[in-house]
């Protein structure tokens, strides 16, 4: 569906994208995970043809994307990272305007606007000016404003920035539903939880380069250890921490100890030992490795500071 081949994009002072190649399949929920300034937005802007690449090519549904080719854009809905809305107009007026550029039949467009507004619970507020909306409501409107032409591909550039968990969940559910119905979705974020929850496949991008690509399980597979064990720091555990050092290396962090198991580690032995030394299970937390730890492993940095 989307084929990105050897894309390089340079700004006067930085190379925003450095020889990137990616293939995104039809009906995939694809995540692009990377820290601030990694080049996510730049890649999105290239995908819609807002920018021209310095090198490389992008094909969408077999058609080459360029600044001058308006046709590929009908297949794409871009949800911009910023709230690209007219604050002084009502939600309805905003949608009327953005829908009008796709040459959709009038009554049909009207019907679709109503349907979209309802699907994100904004129908009641359609006559209100956007500037009276909450952050979450604006985000939802920003989302549906990109979908009035019912595009098969949806590019979401951090669509949940700065909103409450409730709105965030609503957007997640909505996107999952769309994906279920067959839409191809590309989703950028620097929240690994989001990528883990939504995306079947992800690429991790850092300083304009793809540093990893695959399903979440595939990526975690590559981690050299399977699990991390967190032990709450208190009088009991501090006194007995030496006992646990036989199972792996213990890192003393601020409010807890982190145990990285040795090769050949067995959970059953570990719990036996806890019981024997009367350390309550309550103080122990098994931690599955995450994309966060994977990113840390690859770059030595966290996704967010």
């Amino acid at each position: 569906m989307i084929k990105i081949s050897n894309i390089t994009k340079q700004y006067p002072t930085v190379t925003a994208l450095d020889n990137i190649s990616l293939t995104i399949n039809k009906q995939e929920f694809f995540g692009l995970l990377g820290p601030n300034g990694a080049g996510k937005t730049t890649l999105m802007n290239l995908l819609v043809g807002y920018l021209n690449p310095d090198q490389g090519e992008i094909h969408i549904a077999g058609e080459k994307v360029t600044q001058d080719c308006l046709h590929t854009r009908k297949n794409i809905g871009l949800v911009p990272q910023s709230l690209a809305l007219y604050d002084d107009l009502s939600a309805q007026d905003n949608l009327d305007i953005f829908g009008s550029f796709y040459h959709i039949e009038k009554t049909f467009l009207k019907e679709r606007i109503k349907e979209k507004l309802e699907s994100v619970q904004l129908y009641e507020r359609r006559k209100d000016k956007v500037k009276t909306f909450s952050g979450g409501m604006k985000r939802r409107l920003n989302l549906i404003a990109s979908m009035l032409h019912d595009p098969p591909i949806l590019l979401c550039d951090e669509p949940t920035v700065g909103i409450d968990p409730q709105s965030r969940n609503a957007i997640f559910d909505y996107l999952l539903m769309l994906n279920e119905k067959g839409k191809t979705i590309v989703y950028t974020t620097h929240y690994m939880e989001e990528a883990e929850r939504l995306c079947k496949r992800i690429a991790i991008i850092d300083f304009g380069k793809i540093i990893a690509e695959g399903t979440i399980d595939e990526l975690i597979e590559k981690l050299p250890y399977d699990e991390t064990i967190l032990i709450t720091k208190n009088q009991i555990t501090t006194a007995k921490i030496d006992i646990l050092k036989q199972f792996g290396s213990v890192i003393d962090e601020n409010d807890h100890y982190q145990l990285k198991p040795n090769a050949g580690f067995q959970l059953s032995q570990f719990f036996e030992s806890l019981e024997k030394h009367t350390i309550s299970y309550k103080f122990v937390e098994l931690h599955k490795p995450t994309l966060e730890s994977y990113f840390l492993h690859l770059t030595g940095r966290r996704l967010r500071d």
């Binding site: 802007n45 819609v48 043809g49 807002y50 600044q67 001058d68 308006l70 046709h71 854009r73 009908k74 794409i76 809905g77 871009l78 911009p80 990272q81 910023s82 709230l83 690209a84 809305l85 007219y86 604050d87 953005f98 550029f101 796709y102 404003a145 990109s146 032409h149």
Partner: peptide, 16 residues
């Protein structure tokens, strides 16, 4: 441009 509307417009079938 600042609000990103220009990006939204140019992402629709509209040219500069």
């Amino acid at each position: 441009k600042k609000s990103g509307v220009v990006l939204r417009l140019l992402a629709s079938p509209i040219s500069r």
